[in-house]
Each structure stands twice: as structure tokens, then as C-alpha cells.
Computed example of a mutant assay.
Amino acid sequence: MALKYLITGATGGLGKQVLRHFVENVPLSEFAAASSKASNRFMFEDRGIAFRHVDYNDPESLDTGLRDVENLLFVSSSGLGRIEQHGSLINAAKKAGVKHVWYTSLAFGGFENSSRSPVQAEHVETERLLKESGLTYTSIREGAYAEAFPLFLDWQLERTKLILPADGEVAFTLRADLGEATARIMIRGGYENQIVLLTAGETITARRIVDVINETTGRQIKLEIVSREEYIRRSSTEDTRGKPKEHFEMIATIWNDIADGALSTIHPLMRGILGREPTKPRDALRLLLTEDRDYMYP
């Protein structure tokens, strides 16, 4: 019997939110959760949710896990060899006759492919593979997770001074909103062979993020914007975590990209899909920091 929806990455931050909406709004007989770990089966089956083992590195699990699937939520891999893993899943989806692949991309560059961030280049390459495969697909460029703001700032709780190589507007978007909107767009259907953009309706700068941190937690963090070269030099020498120089070069590239507007694009689709305004970036950050003054991205 055909399975209407399969949700990969169902234990991850985004996939978990997508699954939550399915559980609350779709009959259990119509969808299944998938994970790369077969041992996760029981956490779903104990809740009455069907489970499939889908490991992007395991061809046999791809062959069996994607069998008779109509709509596949293809949550992007976060590990090394991402393009090879994505290519394997795309080939398996085509072989299995999946009717519609819904891919979770990122919003760097908005609808354009101009971003300089290496992570976005891998998503653009995956979109190309999907297009060339002949599969019906929708690439959902998900707004930058509001939950990930400490990663963007490279924030360490004990430090009262932050340095960055640039500043710019970011449409930080709450993951719960993204998960719900992603689920809703899959259930609604359509958007065949298109790129869609899901973002909050507002943006926020690093300087304003620091203000929110200070206002919400009582901290007195100061932000200094320096040149790319000075940022890499100072961060490499002052960091106490043992991070390599390449780590700070990556952060610098992302913020230079942001300064050029890579994450500033906002789009009304998410509001239309949700039927309400998405959580504003500043409200999302306040929520996270009110729940946990020492919040760090897991």
C-alpha cells in the first residue's frame, strides 16, 4: 500500500517539528517517520507512528525505506560527504518512483544563487541534481534558524565582548514555525519544480541581537565590528576553545555574505501558509533566552 508521506530526519530539529504537525493534523495511516538509526524505531512505534529506516549512506535502507512513497520530505544531511549522500537519496527516490520530493534547503541568497557561503553551494548543487533527475521536486529554502543565533555570533557565554567582521540584516526564523509551514506546504501540495522561500517577516542585525541578549538576560555584552583580517587574527589568538583558523575564516565569510544581503530577503509565503504572522526574530530570541538565560544552540 502506498505511503502518502515519509518524513526523513524525524529526530532532528526541523524534522521533529514537521512530524509534530503531521501527528496533530494527518491520520497516522498516511505518514511515517524515518531516521538513519534503526534503533529509533521504538520511539515512534510506541506512539503509533510507522517507522522506516533511511540512512543516506546505506543503499539497502534507501531501497526499502523509500518503497511506495508518494511525498518524501528530504531533510538535508549535515555530515561530511553531503553531496554524495544527497545524490544517493535522489537516485533511490527516482528508482522507487517517489512522486514528489520536498527538499529542505537554506535561504542564503534568497531566490538567487549568489551566496558565497560554502554551505549554500552544496544546497544549490543538490537543487541541480534534483532538477536533472527528472523527479518532481520542491526546494524549500528555509530561513536561518533563530535557534542558531549563538553559532552565527560564535558566542561564548563567559565572554562580555563579541567581535565580528561585519554586520547585516538576517531574517532569523523560529524552527517551530518553519516545521509547521513545511508540513503545511507538503499537505497542500503544488509548487512543482520550484524553489520556495520560507522566512520570518522581519530581519534583525547582530547589533540588535546583542541588545536583545542584554535586555533579556541582564548581561552587558559589547559588540565590536572589525575588518575581516583583524577578526580572523584576533579570534585565532584569543579563542580558548582550540578552534582552528579555518573556523574563523568560515564565520567571516558568512558575515561578509550577510553584509551583502544574503539572509535579508523576506517573503510573504510563510505568512500565507501559516495563516498568521511568523514569529518576529526579536521575539524568537527573547523566547529562547527567557526559557534559558544560558541558551546555546544544541
Rank of each mutant, 00 (worst) to 15 (best):
L130E: 12
L130Q: 04
K131A: 15
K131W: 01
K131N: 05
E132W: 01
G134D: 08
G134V: 03
L135Q: 06
Y137L: 09
Y137C: 09
I140D: 12
I140L: 15
R141F: 02
E142A: 15
Y145P: 06
A146H: 07
E147W: 00
A148S: 14
A148N: 09
F149L: 05
L151K: 14
Q156F: 06
T160Y: 07
K161A: 10
L162I: 13
I163W: 08
L164V: 14
G168F: 01
G168V: 01
E169F: 01
A171H: 04
F172D: 01
F172V: 00
F172H: 04
L174H: 15
L174W: 12
D177L: 11
T182D: 08
T182N: 08
I185Y: 07
I185P: 04
I185K: 10
M186P: 01
G190T: 03
G190K: 02
Y191N: 13
I195C: 03
L197C: 02
T199E: 02
A200I: 03
G201D: 08
E202I: 07
T205N: 09
T205F: 07
R208M: 10
I209S: 02
I209C: 01
V210E: 10
D211N: 10
V212Q: 06
V212I: 15
I213M: 06
I213A: 04
G218S: 08
R219C: 08
Q220P: 08
I221T: 13
K222S: 04
L223F: 01
I225T: 11
S227D: 04
R228Y: 12
E229L: 06
Y231W: 11
Y231M: 11
R234Y: 02
R234A: 09
S235N: 09
E238F: 00
D239W: 03
D239R: 07
T240R: 15
G242V: 12
K243S: 11
P244F: 11
K245L: 10
H247P: 10
H247L: 14
E249C: 02
E249T: 11
E249I: 12
M250L: 15
M250P: 15
M250N: 15
I251P: 14
W255N: 04
W255Q: 07
D257L: 01
A259Y: 07
D260G: 05
D260R: 13
A262E: 07
A262S: 14
L263I: 02
S264G: 15
T265Q: 06
T265D: 02
H267F: 13
H267P: 02
H267W: 12
L269P: 13
M270G: 07
R276I: 04
R276T: 05
P278E: 01
